[in-house]
Every structure is written in C-alpha cells, then in structure tokens.
Design a protein around this nucleic acid. Structure first.
Lengths: 358, 358
DNA sequence: CTGAAAGCGCTTACAG
DNA sequence: CTGAAAGCGCTTACAG
C-alpha cells in the first residue's frame, strides 16, 4: 500500500508538505503542490483513515445496534439512519442482537474496541443496562431508539406505545368486542411492557375484566430465518383459544408486526377469516407497500424518521457533548383497516379515501 | 481513554507484558498476570483496535455495498451477510448506492481509505467498472453479488436471470398470452439486461413478435422513501397500455420486486384485477411473508443464501488470496401463483400444497 | 519471564 | 513556504 512517505519521496518533499496538500491545512507553493498532486495520482495514493483516527480519536463510524435488520420496521430505521449518516460523511456498522442481551454485549464490546464515535441502539432488554453503562463509561455517546432501559439516562427517541395500545384496544371495544386476547412480547422489553400496560388500562377503563387466560407472552422474533415453524411459540395457544378454550376471543392484539404475521398464518391454517371470525390489530407497519388484503389495523410508527432523527440527535450530541439530555416521542398513526372493521371492504371499494381516522 | 501504558504503570510492568497477557502471545508469570488483569479491570481497559489495525493491516471490517437496504431482497441479503460476518468476528459496514455509480464511488473510496479487509458488492451498473478496478488496485478482495460488471474478473455469485426470465415468459405464453409487455430495469444493470434477453428469447422461440410498444425501461427504485409517486416513471406507460394503447397487453413481466409492487398499485388505481384483466409475473420475492392476495408468480432468489454465501466466499478469498477465481450461480425457484393462473385460488382453497412447480 | 527500541501511517506543534 | 521531531496506542523483533 502506498504511504504518504512514498508520495513525499517521489515529489521530493517531506511527508509534512504532502499532508498539507491533502488536508489543505496550510499554504503550499503552487509548483510544489502540482508535483505532489501528480505523485499522488501516479502512485494512486489514498490516505489511511486508520492512521488518522489513531491521532484524532475519531473514526467517523457510528454503530447501529438493533434487534433484526430483516424485520421491516428495523430495516426502514436502518435506511433512515444510513441516509443521515452518509449526509454527515460517517459510516454505519450494523449489528443484530435478536433481542439477546448477551449477543448485544459482544457487539458493544467490539464497537467500543473499534472506537466508534457514537451509537444508535435499540436495546435488547432491561438486561442491556450494564452494556449501556459500559458505553457511557467509555464516553461513547449513544441514543436509545424505540426502547428505553430504566436506570440509564441518555438521549432517546421512542413511540407512544401505551397510548397507541390504549387506542387500539379501545377501538376493538368500540367495535363491541368483550373477549380481547393479547399476544405480547417479552415483558423485559420496554415496548412490550408499555403496550401491555395500555391494553390493561383500556380494558379497565371500559370495565372489562383482565383475563389471564387471554394473555400470552411470545417472542418478538422470529430471528432464525431458516425455519419459520412457530419460533414465537404461540401457535398452540392460539389454536387453543380459537378451537377448544373456555373463552374464545373475538379479537386479538398483536404486540408487533412479526407476531401479527404469524397470527395471520395461523388463522389461515385454521381456516378462520379476519375480521369475520376474529378481529386483529397490531403494532408497527406489517404492510409497508399497502398490498395486504385484509389490510390490518395497526399503530404505525414512522420508522424512517426514527432512524433519521436518532442519527440527527446523535450528531448534535457529538457536536455538543455537554448539552442537556434530549428526548423525543414520536406518535403513532393508527390506521383503521379491514382486519378490525367488518364493513371496511365495502367502504374501501366505494371510496379509497374513506379510511376512518381517529 | 485508558491505554495499555496506564495499565502497565498501575501493574508495575512494561506495556509489553500487558500486551502478552491480553493476546496470550507468550508466557507470563502467574502473579504478574494476576496483577495485570486486576489493573485492567480496575481501569476498565478495552484495547484500541485502531492501533492494532495500524500494525496488522487488518480491520476486521467488511464493506457491504448494495442498491437499497430497504428493498426486502437486499435486506435479506444483508442479514445473511451480517450473520456470517459475525460468525467470523468481523463487522459489517453497510452502504446504499441507489443504483447510482457516482454515489457508489464515494462509498468505495471511503471504504478503501478505511482499509476494510474486503467487500461484498452489488454493483450499481456497468459504470461501476472503474470503482471495482480501484478496489483491485488497492488489493482489497471483493465478491460481486447478484450483478456482474463486464471486464472485471473477481469472485462472484449471481442468479440464473436469463433462464428465469425465459421460464416466466414461457409460462405466460403457455397460459395463452400473446401480448406480453415488460417493464424492465435500466439496461446497464446486469440483471435487467439478462432478464430482458430471456424475455426476448422466450418470445422468439415461441414465434411471437417482439413489440417495441410493449417494452418499457424503468428504474429499479423507488429509492426516495419519502414520496412514492411514480418515481419509477412507468405509470403513464402502463395507463396507456391498459386504457388507450393500440395493443393492450394481457400479461406483464416486472423486472424486479419494486416494479411489481408499483404495478399492483397502478392496477388497483385503474380498477383492474389480476390475473382477470391482466396477468403478472415478477423477479425476486415480493411477498416474503406469503400474505399477499393475489399471490404473485415470481422467480424467487434465495436472498439469505446470497448474503451468507457471498460472505463465505469472501472469507475464503481472504484466507487464500491466490486461489483461483470462483463463481457460483444460484438458481431461482419459480413460484407459480394466482397472479398468472386464473384457477389458482380455487386450487389453493382446496389444497394449500397444490402449488404447481415446474 | 520481562523490557527497551523501533515502527505501523499519519498529524500536531514547533522551528526556521 | 517547508521540514525534523515527537507521538497517537499498540505489536514485532530483539536482547537479556
């Protein structure tokens, strides 16, 4: 690999002068500059960022740590983050922790060692606390995205999970449902916990009983992309509810997009129709291209903005390390669609713009 | 930031001995080792990978350069690549070039400067040639994925585009279609070019005329995630074909998943039904979760394997820089579904396993 | 088993 | 306008 010394020798100057030409950090004689530029070109010289980083302490690299790049919600976040990082001339290292705090820790340790300038992280769970403390301890600024970890004070951007869950559940109640089951994510994950609280609050406020038999905790997965057989572990619960349980739910709340997709597969396998046999609402957009029929009622979060704004917040932090901690709550947009409104398709055919809004 | 010198001072040894303990590169007295380990812990020391990289010439970092992370095809590739990179304890830098060779060049220059160990790249177009030559010139091994660039000899993994296009088109012909239109990608993109050749060959072999009026070149986008209004620029063509053109096609070939999605939106806006009013086939999986109705006939490529195998091929190259160039062709699986088979839904309801295979 | 010296490829700070 | 020296945080190669 050509070094600055090679260029210097060929141009008959010192490395220092070459450095000045590259970085335009001081005036250089025009003839000398020409000679140096020619030497750089002839040798096809590209400066070594590693050497620069060792001196500057900056790598122009940001870590993006999230659950699963293959989940469309996180995919879109990643694209928003990458676009913004590119704008700031930084590169993005992407890591998938699959909601596993141990895997997350491995990545974080590697990223600390790689001296990333900062991190945007969707924490795996409450067990991420030590990892985040480790980051702080090494003075690596980070933004928590989508999920909080209690005991950690740092910039963050999250959604209005509890409110959204309350609204989705209330919508089902408004539709006349009394037995509303929920398939939730692991409670040590912030969003899953918040959504459950919103579900509980809506039932309570409407004087409906909270039935333990209608609550199931599942994985937010699947994270194994090779097999898709009930990796979330709620198929039998769902079958039991719909076919032989003591209380058959007439509506289902899915705590994220992956859960909703798996529910739709299960309903199809059971030859049940949605919303005729059972209604469905979910979190996160399950249908980014708007092509699913039945279309699914969901609390859509602005994923691209999540990524973009988290990165923006991080760069502001890098610029002003001592500024006050900031937080941002992005509100979900509830899309009321056919999976929870029996008459929706008729409406839909008549007028595409008739989508009901809260 | 704590350095190896800080640890050495606290443990009353030289930096060299600390280095030996960290890397287990030579025997160290047990008591000394204990003292050093304690000092490392007390100071919360994490070795600086940057400094190591400067010496070793390795960064344990791989560049993954692709068109658009938000396209599910590339998303799945990225996940496959990241999983494999993680297995090899390497980190992945992800870059989106949006089929823009200029944007691609910026990234490649930055990655060369960052001294990545290798790259997996879906080249933007034939105009990527110079960028790839630049990589080779800097002795950075790379694997071309999904797309080839003529004049570049390097390891690669691609699909069987021409054959798949031939089969998809022939399938439409078998179904009795005579006016088969194609909305293709830019011809300087390898896959678009190959798919078009397959389409032409199928028509020719079946003695059907190639009609210029039924050929439209569009973007493989959209790459702007904020607006989705005809960013590919074929809406008016499609409208013309279906509503007022001299020859109304009875079937459409979509050259990638994004084009197919946009076609479905357009058909819906025109109140046309698929396959009743016009049949549709496409490349790449448009429906990773199998929930679309109508389900779309497509030549699905094993995206996860693309990413995984490309990374595997790259690591083998890194291990054996002088081994012969390898290439791998992954065959598409043609899924015959309802968008091109009028009776499909009836079959489907009767028996989910009745999917027709070639 | 341990350490002093040199160097990876650059830039900062100083001198002229 | 230009350059010699020192140093970023490590490891390699040598010496003892």
């Amino acid at each position: 690999m050509t070094t600055i010394a090679d260029v210097a020798k060929r141009a008959n100057v010192s490395a220092m002068t070459v450095s000045r030409v590259i970085n335009e950090t001081a005036a250089v004689n025009d003839a000398t500059r020409e000679r140096i530029l020619r030497a750089m070109e002839e040798l096809n010289y590209v400066p070594n960022s590693i050497a620069r980083s060792l001196i500057s302490g900056k790598t122009n690299t940001i870590g993006l740590v999230l659950a699963d790049l293959a989940n469309p919600f996180f995919t879109t976040i990643a694209r928003g983050a990458e676009d913004n990082a590119h704008l700031h001339r930084h590169r993005l290292i992407i890591c998938n922790h699959d909601d596993d705090a141990y895997k997350e820790r491995e990545y974080i340790d590697a990223l600390i060692s790689a001296r990333i300038d900062g991190m945007v992280i969707v924490p795996a769970s409450d067990a991420s606390r030590d990892s985040l403390r480790q980051l702080a301890c090494h003075h690596i600024p980070f933004v928590m995205l989508d999920r909080l970890v209690s005991g950690i004070s740092a910039d963050y951007i999250i959604g209005d999970n509890r409110t959204a869950a309350y609204r989705l559940t209330s919508h089902l109640i408004d539709q006349g449902h009394k037995h509303i089951a929920i398939i939730n994510g692991p409670q040590q994950i912030y969003t899953a916990h918040e959504r459950f609280q919103g579900y509980v609050a809506a039932l309570t406020d409407h004087n409906l009983p909270l039935r333990q038999e209608l609550i199931k905790e599942a994985s937010f997965g699947p994270y194994n992309h090779r097999t898709k057989d009930d990796s979330q572990g709620f198929s039998s619960t769902l079958r039991n509810w719909m076919q032989s349980g003591p209380i058959r739910p007439t509506a289902l709340v899915a705590a994220n997009n992956m859960v909703a997709i798996e529910i739709l597969h299960n309903l199809e396998a059971m030859h049940l129709r949605c919303p005729d046999d059972v209604a469905l609402v979910c979190f996160e957009d399950i249908d980014p291209y708007g092509l699913l029929r039945p279309s699914v009622t969901s609390a859509a979060q602005p994923a691209y903005e999540y990524g973009q704004l988290a990165m923006k917040m991080l760069f502001e932090r890098l610029k002003s390390p001592d500024r006050a901690i900031q937080s941002l709550i992005l509100h979900s947009e509830i899309h009321y669609r056919s999976s929870s409104i029996p008459s929706y398709n008729a409406l839909y055919v008549e007028d595409k713009a008739s989508e009901i809004r809260a």
